[in-house]
Design a protein around this nucleic acid. Structure first.
Lengths: 349, 349
DNA sequence: CTGAAAGCGCTTACAG
DNA sequence: CTGAAAGCGCTTACAG
């Protein structure tokens, strides 16, 4: 492997000079530069990034922790993050928890070993807030509060919920079924986020005197399970006339409705939450609440940049307010909220 | 940051000893080990992987080059690769070419700067074979031949094509439309792979005297374009009675058929190629040819392992037969082929 | 079994 | 403007 030393020897200069030329930093006379460049050419020199990484203690890599990109929601989120990071000179390490036996801990370890510069956390976690707070390295959460000092970004699920409820009320729905995550997670500090839109819908429907039942969907990682969920809805609630769930659930519900000869939207309305490509592929154009992936990715990347910057120039204070936390004069926005949009399709009246 | 030196000082031993303990390698007396472990505990020592990376000239990271994981096919492939790599102690760097202005070159550069140990190449490339051959680092291609010495893995598209043709012939199809990549790429050395199933289908249908037209789909990166494609098919070929295309195309065709009141499968059969989740979400259970993602991922990872191994213990020969090529007594399987399966659904007769 | 030393390939003050 | 030197944090022969 040809290194800087070889180039220096070939060009008859010092290693420092070669470094200056490679990095286009500092002043180098034109003939020195020419000699070095010629040597690099002839030796086919390619700098080894690993040495730089060690020196700078940086990899320019961000880990994106998702349950699995087999699910279109996380595929979309990850794709947009990758694009956003690439524009900022950052690489994206794909960290799936669906397969990792140890869940996210394995990736957090990697963060602490400096294999990455930060983590975007978008998966469910069993860890308590103090776990996350104690990591003291750049972490940004998506759609959940991990702990104090860990900034987060989420969609405006309350607005999403209101739009859905309004549609259902205005169209005269009578018996709505909501499909979502485990009901046991409907708590204040939950890391299951879409809870918020469910609760909003439930309250508004209750106020309007519309029946509303809740069905737990299969695990987010198991797409096939959603088919069983769809079947279960119709079995359990034969008079259901509106179903609200994620894109995948909505698509499967529509498919099952077709099989049962139920007319959509005449006899059954379906509303998809998320607005990923999965919603486009269904039997009809689904009415949906779309999350703004580009905006979410931009906000997450922005917060990540801040975290990393804060880590690099530690505040003038004590150790304790170091990594992962910015000073008081630049407060990290906790819970930045991104708007959603309601898009009418062929599955609502 | 607390380093090995701090631990050594705290424990009253040398850095070497700490290293031995951390790596659980070589012999260390029990009391030494105990002292070191106590020191690591109390100092909360975490080894810095970057130093190791530099020393070993390895990152244990593989770049997976895909057009975009917004497309379910590449999402599935990437997800399975990540899982497979994780099992082998390798990390997955997500490399999307849809956004990278420079296409794959940027990622190849990173490979040469040792930011990753290898690349899985699954996207289309404009580069000629000698480009790929000259890289001399671990590369494995999916579904395309990049150049001599670059091993590849692909599905048995010929078998997929035969299964499709058989279904169409047996069910009495009269006018089939195939949807796929740019026809200009239907050449021997193409890096658009599914060409193979299209050609197989065309030949068999021609032999059976069945009309068959070809329609170019939008770019793989643009999912919405597929909807326009679906519309175009019905406009251009009003008497079409069978459509064959990727999952996404098939789903959109089914949706459009519904809008036009065309009965599936009575008046129109639809066959999806790939068998990703996209095929499950459509209005009906699509009949499909499914590629075996777990097997593909395993084969790709296996080839990658070999490439990396070959790079680490360079053969006894000259430089020229070094990295990326294994010796003659352990021939790399060029073009390893993975079986596909035909799954009948609700969209064929 | 343990430690001093050299080195992984680069970068960056610091003298000249 | 250029070079000698120290150092990033670890690993691995090599003496003892």
């Amino acid at each position: 492997m040809v290194g800087m030393r070889d180039v220096a020897k070939e060009a008859g200069v010092s290693v420092s000079t070669v470094s200056l030329v490679v990095n286009k930093t500092g002043y180098v006379s034109d003939d020195m530069r020419a000699k070095v460049e010629a040597a690099m050419q002839s030796l086919n020199y390619i700098p080894n990034e690993l040495a730089r990484n060690l020196y700078r203690n940086r990899t320019n890599t961000i880990g994106v922790i998702v349950p699995t990109i087999l699910h279109p929601f996380f595929a979309a989120l990850t794709a947009h993050l990758q694009r956003e990071f690439a524009g900022r000179g950052l690489k994206t390490l794909l960290c799936s928890t669906a397969d990792a036996a140890t869940g996210e801990s394995e990736y957090v370890n990697m963060l602490q070993r400096h294999m990455m510069d930060g983590i975007i956390m978008t998966a469910h976690t069993e860890h308590q807030p103090d776990y996350w707070t104690s990591i003291r390295r750049p972490i940004v959460a998506f759609d959940r509060i991990l702990g104090e000092g860990v900034p987060s970004v989420r969609s405006d699920h309350e607005a999403g919920g209101r739009a859905i409820a309004r549609q259902l009320i205005d169209s005269g729905a009578r018996h709505v079924v909501l499909v979502g995550g485990p009901r046991s997670q409907f708590t204040e500090g939950t890391t299951f986020p879409t809870v918020r839109y469910h609760l909003t819908v439930e309250h508004m429907l209750a106020d309007a005197g519309i029946a509303c039942d809740y069905v737990e969907a299969g695990a987010v990682t198991d797409v096939v399970a959603h088919e069983a969920t769809a079947t279960a809805i119709f079995e359990r609630y034969p008079d259901v006339d509106a179903i609200v769930g994620s894109d995948v659930v909505a698509a499967m519900a529509l498919q099952e409705a077709g099989r049962r000869g139920i007319q959509v939207p005449t006899d059954l309305q379906i509303i998809a939450y998320d607005g990923t490509m999965a919603a486009e592929l269904a039997g009809k154009r689904l009415t949906m609440v779309r999350q703004d992936f580009p905006a979410i990715a931009a906000a997450l990347a922005e917060q990540m940049d801040r975290q990393i910057e804060a880590e690099n120039k530690p505040s003038r204070g004590s150790q304790s307010e170091s990594a992962g936390q910015s000073g008081a004069d630049d407060p990290v926005q906790l819970g930045q909220i991104v708007p959603v949009s309601f898009i009418a399709g062929e599955t609502t009246r």
